[in-house]
Design a protein around this nucleic acid. Structure first.
Lengths: 202, 202
DNA sequence: GTCTATATACCGATAGAC
DNA sequence: GTCTATCGGTATATAGAC
C-alpha cells in the first residue's frame, strides 16, 4: 500500500505532531487552534477538515498513544521470564519509551483532567490496563518470594510516577547519557523491591 | 494582634484558597478570573483590589507555598541525625505535607510553565533549594557508606517525583490509611537506596 | 481540502459610581 | 473595597467561495 508510506507526511499526521508538542509544552487549555494551525502553516479552520473539535483532537492523541504504549510494552516484556527479569524489562522499556515519546506520555499523564467524560473513560481503561501489567509483575515476584513489596498496588504507582517524572528534568544534551539514566532507574527500582543485581537474592 | 487572628477569613486569603484549588483542578490556563470570583462570591473586578493580575496571583501562591515547604522541612528534619534517620524524616515529612497540601504542591510542580520569566526564576531557586536538601542527605549517606546510590542527583529527583505523584491517585477516603501510605513510601525509598529497616545494614 | 469571513461567547484588565 | 459597565482582544466553531 503506497498510502501507508506517505501517511506520515499528510496534513492530518502533521497536525497531530504539532498539537502533541504544543499540548505538552503549554497544556491543552494553553494552546489555541490558531496556535496549532500557525505552527503547521495552515489556517485555523483547516483543522476541522481532519478533527471534529479540539476535544476530539486531544482524545485522538491520547487513545492512539495509550494503545501504542501497551502494544510496545507487550512486545518488550517476556512474561514467561522470572519476575525479576520481567520487572527489569518493564522499567528499561518504559524509560526508553518515555525518552523517545516524552510529549505523548506527559499528555497522557497530565491532561486526563481536560477530557470530557466519554473520552476520559476510554483513556482511564487503557491506563489501568498498563498499570495492571506492572502490578501483576510485582504480585508474581511477591508470591514467588523474589521481591519484598509491602503493597504492590501502591508500589506500582510509585514506580510509574518515578519514571514518568524523568521527562521533567532529563535533557538529552545534558551530562548524563541515556543508557546511564536507564541503568540508574533499573537499579533503583529493583532495589526498591528488595532485589538488587549486586546481591545474591535475585 | 487581633489582625492575625482574623486574617484567615479576609477576602484576600479566601481568594487565594479558591484560586489554589481551581488552579490545581483545571490548570492555570483553564481557570478564568471570573471562575475564581464566582467561586468566592464576588465580582471579577474585585480580585484586582488584592492582586495586580492573574499572573501575580499565581506567583503569590507558588512563592508562599515554596517558602512554607522549605521552612516546614527544616523544622521536621534533624540534620544532626544519621543520614538514614534524615532520609526517613524527610520522606515522612514530605508525604504528609503532600497529603495536607495537595493543591499547592501540585501547582508548584506543574505550573512552572505558566510563569513569566521573573516569577519563574524566583520559584526555581526555591525549588532547587528544597531538592538540594534531599540530595545533600543522599550524598552524606553515600559518603558514610550507609547508602548505595549510583547517582544522588538522579535518585533525588526520582524520589521527589515518586512522592509528588501520590496526590494523583491517593484518596483519603480509600481503603488505605494515611499512615500506611507513609510507611510504604518510607520503606520503599529506604530500600531504593540500599537501606532497609529489615536489614542490619542501617 | 484550504481559504476568507464571520457568528457567538469569553478572556484579562480598567473606569468610575458608591 | 466592591459594584456595574465596558474596552480591546481572542476563543471555538461554522458558512460558503474556490
Amino acid at each position: 500500500m503506497a498510502d501507508l508510506e506517505t501517511s506520515r507526511s499528510n496534513t492530518k499526521d502533521i497536525l497531530r505532531d504539532h498539537a502533541r508538542r504544543l499540548f505538552a509544552e503549554r497544556g491543552y487549555e494553553g494552546v489555541s487552534m490558531r496556535d496549532i494551525a500557525g505552527s503547521v502553516g495552515v489556517q485555523q479552520s483547516a483543522i476541522y477538515n481532519h478533527f471534529a473539535s479540539k476535544q476530539h483532537l486531544l482524545v485522538d492523541l491520547m487513545v492512539d498513544h495509550m494503545e501504542d504504549l501497551i502494544r510496545s510494552m507487550r512486545a518488550a516484556v517476556d512474561f514467561r521470564a522470572t519476575p525479576r527479569e520481567q520487572l527489569e524489562s518493564f522499567v528499561r522499556f518504559h524509560v526508553n519509551y518515555q525518552l523517545d515519546n516524552p510529549d505523548a506520555l506527559f499528555i497522557a499523564y497530565m491532561e486526563l483532567r481536560s477530557l470530557e467524560p466519554e473520552g476520559r473513560e476510554t483513556v482511564v481503561v487503557l491506563r489501568d490496563e498498563y498499570e495492571l501489567a506492572l502490578r501483576g509483575i510485582l504480585d508474581a515476584g511477591d508470591a514467588a518470594g523474589e521481591f519484598e513489596v509491602t503493597n504492590p498496588a501502591v508500589v506500582a504507582r510509585c514506580i510509574l510516577a518515578m519514571m514518568t517524572g524523568v521527562t521533567v528534568w532529563y535533557k538529552e544534551t545534558g551530562p548524563l547519557g541515556r543508557e546511564a539514566v536507564v541503568d540508574v532507574f533499573a537499579e533503583t527500582i529493583l532495589r526498591s523491591v528488595g532485589c538488587s543485581s549486586a546481591t545474591a537474592e535475585c
